[in-house]
Write a protein that binds this DNA or RNA. Structure first.
Lengths: 222, 222
DNA sequence: ACCTGAACACCGTTCAAGT
DNA sequence: ACCTGAACACCGTTCAAGT
């Protein structure tokens, strides 16, 4: 309750990582600098180096924080349902933090939740009849599919102010609209759908459906 | 033939971008800095600003250079073959430059080859019976699938010296090997396949097969 | 154990100036 | 048209020092 504590609420790995996460969400991942973050926390840049070996370590901490929120679904025994549930769990965890999602790839096997989801995916793909190598590759593909879906949502729009985001959108639509309909008939016809996503949930469903349908199509057993 | 020309071979957008591309391939995208690149070209950092408005513009130039190499395949009329060919063309162009591949996403509609491939994908997906919105989303998914496949190949290994790359690999294998086989039986069993890819071509084939199988599984007509 | 202060080698970029 | 030079506001990080 002391004023000092109120302004500077006891640094720790998680406190720092959480503040960095907020910063990444609101202003983009490139706004997360050691010096900016330290200022945000009312502390010297060097203070952060007590809790993180390096900036790379700090960013890894952000990814870990995202994986902390991943809930491991119960297995049903039905492999299609299980792989779908694993993918959705990963997407749900990363969706609030699209700017950090790309960093999750490198941390997946270093985090208990990441390992649990990977274990689940591998087991499920084995059950589906895949050999070790395709199973491993398809499991990693699932992770990357989740990441690219999450980061594609706003594409490059996340982490920039709302007005700038809109200007960016309109510019993109104008650019497609200016294309020659003779040369790019399909592109012009799909201009709206290419630039604006009315329902993100539907978008993620499609991404998951695509992956599951692909795995089903490649599954050897059956 | 003058010695001056030999050392400083006439700057231009393409000359600068190509040197930057080499730098990204050999030392990683983060080695591409304005100052480093200028030094590499035997020129003042500010010289680059004559040819590029900003560093962002320079990086866009790299992505454009990658797309320059994309060959647009002839349509066959068979939509599965066509979508496969488009994906393979994109992968073939990006494979030599995994460090630059992520930048291609934002340039795809600004480059003639990117537009041609997108047009082809949209047309093909329309032929397959998809509505505008799913067709648009699936086309972008193809692009992202290509990018994540290309960048996954070496994962984080590309752009670092060969010895460090090997050390990194061995460390990763050891880390999985150290896991409890009771807790992570599938993970331990798949350790080799998760960390080492004996045949990249096979890997890319699987990625393409997965996408095509997924689209086939979701196609409404049929 | 936890944080500060000064210093170092880097960044991207502006602006005025040279040829 | 094309490039240089000096300057500015930023980076990440080391190292010694404080409490």
């Amino acid at each position: 309750m002391s004023p000092k504590t109120a302004e500077r609420p006891a640094l720790s790995r998680n406190v720092v990582a959480d503040r960095a996460l907020e910063l990444a969400d609101s202003e983009g991942i490139e706004a997360v600098t050691v010096r900016r973050l330290a200022a945000e926390l009312g502390v010297t840049p060097m203070a952060l180096y007590w809790h993180f070996r390096t900036k790379e370590d700090l960013l890894a901490g952000l990814a870990d924080r995202v994986l902390d929120d991943a809930e491991i679904p119960d297995p049903t025994g039905e492999w299609q349902a299980d792989i779908r549930a694993a993918l959705l769990a990963l997407i749900a965890a990363m969706r609030p933090h699209p700017q950090v999602a790309p960093l999750v790839a490198q941390r997946i096997l270093h985090h208990p939740n990441g390992r649990a989801l990977t274990e689940r995916a591998l087991r499920t793909l084995s059950d589906a009849g895949f050999d070790k190598e395709p199973a491993a590759h398809l499991a990693m593909q699932a992770l990357r599919a989740a990441i690219s879906a999450v980061t594609a949502d706003q594409v490059d729009d996340s982490g920039m102010p709302a007005e700038e985001r809109e200007a960016h959108l309109r510019q993109k639509q104008a650019m497609i609209g200016a294309l020659s309909p003779q040369q790019y008939p399909a592109l012009v016809a799909h201009a709206a759908a290419m630039t604006y996503c009315p329902d993100p949930d539907e978008f993620f469903q499609l991404a998951v459906d695509l992956y599951v349908a692909g795995v089903r199509g490649l599954a050897p057993s059956r």
